[in-house]
Write a protein that binds this DNA or RNA. Structure first.
Length: 269
DNA sequence: CGATTATGATTAA
DNA sequence: TAATCCTAATCGC
């Protein structure tokens, strides 16, 4: 589920649902019982996303840090809430709604300093106001690691995951193995611009949609899953039909189109 | 029923 | 780089 757009939508939904009235917090699973007890009875003050990291703070000064990881989910469960499954790490709710957190990589209370340290370690988040684009350019200029690995590094850009990195590279026409420091300024610009554009579409729609509706002949609201991406998890390029290649970069598989994303030429590079 | 897989990240080596 | 963690849906036998 979660690349950056998911966490930003989640933060907004929690703000809307839980703003009013004291929170009830429990840990049916038991693994966050102490933390839930400290949150219980407080009132929500803020919920915000930094890349894939979610912070929820209360009027009593508690700061809840949640990271969904690969398999975590934080979703509304209706009102009144049904009996909780025994995997629910945290159930949070009030008169505005009820939410269950299941399978998170992180669910913990942090101090203001700890929170600041996490945020300081993250690269610019395209979905936040006034992201520091220069920092993104600087990081790319300074490393020879393959751009396909660099885009997954949250210290470089916060919020991209395995789908967006593959699609952003496709849209920029760049081979995933290209050393980041060999990219030209306009290529780095394209990576940033496409990241912003795609994440915004994801935030607006709640889906990772990267294809051009005009090209597909179908509005985003009715986009079929099979047409939603150009290369991610595909066998053939959605645009030109060429058989895709697969690499392992940043510890994860990435598909690319050998025709639309040619490898860096030795003489021009 | 077990194995596999998934939009992630940290730790150890 | 590999091992590890977290959960649930899906698939094959």
């Amino acid at each position: 589920m979660p690349e950056g757009h998911t966490i930003h939508r989640l933060a907004r939904a929690l703000r809307r649902d839980l703003a009013e009235g004291p929170l009830h917090a429990t840990s049916p699973q038991g693994r966050f019982a102490a933390g839930a007890a400290l949150i219980d009875g407080s009132t929500l003050r803020s919920a915000e996303a930094w890349g894939k990291y979610l912070f929820v703070s209360t009027d009593t000064g508690q700061i809840l840090h949640v990271h969904l990881g690969l398999i975590g989910k934080f979703r509304p469960v209706g009102h009144p809430p049904p009996p909780a499954r025994d995997t629910v790490r945290l159930r949070l709710g009030n008169q505005g709604g009820w939410w269950d957190l299941v399978g998170p990589a992180r669910c913990e209370l942090v101090s203001p300093d700890e929170r600041a340290a996490i945020v300081a370690g993250l690269g610019p988040d395209p979905l936040r106001p006034r992201p520091d684009v220069d920092r993104f350019h600087d990081r790319l200029r300074r490393t020879s690691r393959p751009i396909g690995a660099v885009l997954l590094d949250q210290r470089v850009i916060a919020g991209l995951g395995n789908i967006y990195r593959a699609e952003v590279l496709y849209l920029a026409g760049l081979h995933p193995s290209t050393p980041a420091n060999r990219l030209a300024a306009d290529q780095r610009d394209a990576l940033w611009t496409e990241s912003v554009r795609l994440l915004r579409i994801g935030f607006r729609t709640g889906r990772i949609l990267t294809t051009d509706p005009a090209e597909i002949g179908r509005p985003r609201s009715r986009m079929r899953a099979a047409d939603a991406h150009y290369v991610y998890h595909r066998e053939f390029c959605r645009r030109c039909g060429t058989a895709l290649g697969t690499l392992h970069l940043g510890g994860r598989p990435i598909q690319f189109c050998p025709d639309c994303q040619p490898a860096l030429n030795h003489r021009s590079g």
